[in-house]
Design a protein around this nucleic acid. Structure first.
Lengths: 116, 116
DNA sequence: TGAATATATGAACACCTGTTCATGTATTAA
DNA sequence: TTAATACATGAACAGGTGTTCATATATTCA
């Protein structure tokens, strides 16, 4: 297929393409969605929207190894979706900000409303 | 590691685990985030939030093959994130609803605000 | 000090994803 | 009818992801 069909207004499309978020922004957005695409990490985020938690508590609530939880938390940490504070030998995790909570809630709402 | 540490209030954690969205909801949510995790699909969604488009127009705006675009659109269609209407030989794609647009905007906002 | 607890991390492996290539189908135009 | 156009789809392959296992580190307690 060539790059143009009868419907394509090339200058317009090119301008729209330039209105796209820049590559760096796209990358960071896709990284966030990528992080939220795992069942385990979604559950972690959902739990954290109820209260802050240490790794043990996740271990008790979820059905994966402690190692898997730590790996998941690292991913979320690196994207600044969650943060840690150390309390003695415990690592207490909490949501980085409300944006993320809203993201999760919005998606949940979309899914449950649209399947109802 | 055992399933309990000194911090764990087991009945509470178990109740929190039950408050989690059910498996089906979690699966649908992760499927949506999974779909939005690809640069190409994110760009498609961003373009669609500007105006409805046919496949040719995506082909003109994006730097991947028409095949890749069709595959991406199928993924988005199957999750009801976008919809199609046929107009002669053209397939016109548009966002399924506003939830999704808000999701994208919110994530974009998060990324650009937090990196500023 | 030494043992137990809480968490992190590297390696490895099975699985999944996104792309391209090749090709198929449907619609229009000549 | 034939050729061209617009789009869809299956196969296949490279690259990435999530999990577990084994192990390391850091903190507390005896």
């Amino acid at each position: 297929m060539n790059d143009t069909c009868i419907r394509v207004d090339e200058p317009l499309i090119e301008q729209m393409a330039q209105n796209l978020p820049d590559e760096q922004t796209i990358n960071r957005m896709s990284a966030i969605f990528q992080a939220l695409q795992s069942d385990t990490r979604l559950k972690i985020m959902s739990l954290l929207s109820q209260k802050e938690m240490c790794v043990c508590e996740f271990d008790c609530a979820l059905d994966v190894t402690q190692s898997a939880i730590s790996h998941s938390l690292r991913t979320l940490r690196q994207l600044d979706l969650v943060r840690v504070k150390k309390q003695g030998r415990f690592a207490i995790y909490y949501l980085a900000d409300d944006h993320v909570k809203i993201l999760i809630d919005l998606c949940n709402k979309h899914v449950t409303e649209c399947s109802a």
